[in-house]
């Protein structure tokens, strides 16, 4: 097991290098850069920009150097100082712009994942073990509604209901008195009181999907011979259910944890905007639209790295729960 993890970790390094190169290429690919469009904007407003001023700006941002040098400088700073470069638009280091947002996004996302699993797995198990029962149909019905409603719409509806019926204003993650305050226990409590709304909004679609997947996987497993074998040994139904088929049905779901990591950062930009959340989604959208090169590039890099790391985490978890993968899987029928 340890050997397996080490092997996978060594494979990770070249992959991350390739990813950083691709991220950089992607962000320099579109014609023009932030500076050019910035200068054009200034000039169109009638402000003349002196040539030496332009040169100075170019030097500060390293735009006068050849691309590969810009790349090397960018990567070197990330590795040495955790410095992702400057955001042109915000005129602040990228790290300052997205640092807290990433942390908050993570909090929301992890809560969402927990919410999704805690709600979906038991319902999926119930639906599979009571196939075609009234509740199974009911969950199926709500499941499809949950899948079909776009999150931003759900967000608007919930906000309206909360405001109209409970006189609650639930946008943002903090109430005004805490928004600018530094972290304290009070601020944490304040966040917890508001976090449920984004969690429900973001988690509904995933929960509905996961219920379907869990139900389907478990129905498959329940038909398998080993379940009957276990039953013929005299095991009680509930013990049997959780020891064998549920355990095997959850295995494929574990691989989905890997995709959740990048979704954590990129996901839910629209919900984030609608709910006015201090998360990464809205910022990323802006950065991409205004060609804020280092900011956008950092997002691409972080997202891709998270994808790779997420996949690794999934694989390790899978190997941990499934011996067939752990031992290099001989598949034999």
């Amino acid at each position: 097991m340890l050997g397996y993890i080490l092997m996978r970790l060594t494979h990770l390094i070249p992959l991350l290098i390739v990813i950083s190169i691709i991220s950089f290429i992607v962000i320099t690919l579109p014609p023009g850069d932030y500076l050019t469009s910035h200068i054009t904007r200034l000039q169109s407003q009638g402000t003349s920009v002196a040539q030496e001023e332009i040169e100075r700006l170019k030097r500060t941002y390293g735009l006068d150097q050849p691309a590969y040098q810009q790349y090397l400088r960018w990567v070197y700073r990330i590795v040495r100082h955790g410095d992702f470069g400057m955001s042109f638009q915000w005129e602040r280091p990228v790290r300052r712009v997205i640092g807290e947002r990433i942390a908050l996004t993570m909090v929301i996302s992890i809560c969402t994942i927990v919410f999704t699993w805690v709600v979906a797995i038991p319902i999926g198990i119930y639906a599979a073990t009571h196939q075609y029962s009234f509740l199974d149909y009911l969950f199926t019905f709500f499941g499809f509604i949950g899948l079909a409603i776009p999150n931003f719409l759900l967000a608007l509806v919930l906000m309206y209901v909360a405001f109209a019926h409970f006189d609650l204003s639930v946008t943002g993650l903090f109430s005004p008195e805490y928004a600018a305050a530094s972290w304290s226990f009070g601020k944490f409590i304040d966040m917890m009181q508001r976090i449920w709304l984004p969690v429900i909004v973001i988690g509904t679609g995933g929960t509905a999907g996961l219920i379907r997947v869990m139900r389907g996987c478990l129905l498959d497993e329940l038909r398998k011979q080993y379940v009957i074998t276990a039953r013929t040994k005299g095991l009680a139904e509930s013990r049997l259910l959780f020891k064998y088929p549920v355990r095997l049905a959850i295995n494929p779901l574990i691989s989905t944890i890997g995709w959740l990591l990048p979704a954590i950062v990129s996901g839910e930009a629209i919900t984030g905007i609608v709910l006015n959340l201090p998360t990464t989604g809205p910022v990323m959208l802006q950065a991409l639209m205004s060609q804020d090169m280092y900011l956008a590039g950092s997002f691409v890099l972080i997202l891709s790295s998270l994808t790779v790391i997420g996949t690794l985490v999934s694989d390790i978890l899978l190997a941990w729960v499934d011996p067939r993968i752990r031992y290099g899987g001989v598949s034999e029928k």
Binding site: A230, T232, G234
Partner: peptide, 28 residues
């Protein structure tokens, strides 16, 4: 699903099957 039949299964009467591969759980 009751206790009476469960006491019989595996203790009084057991069963073996055609497919020895699928008859075992692969992860235990």
């Amino acid at each position: 699903k009751g206790k009476a039949i469960r006491e019989i299964r595996g203790r009084e009467i057991s069963m073996i099957f055609q497919e020895p591969m699928t008859s075992f759980s692969p992860v235990h």
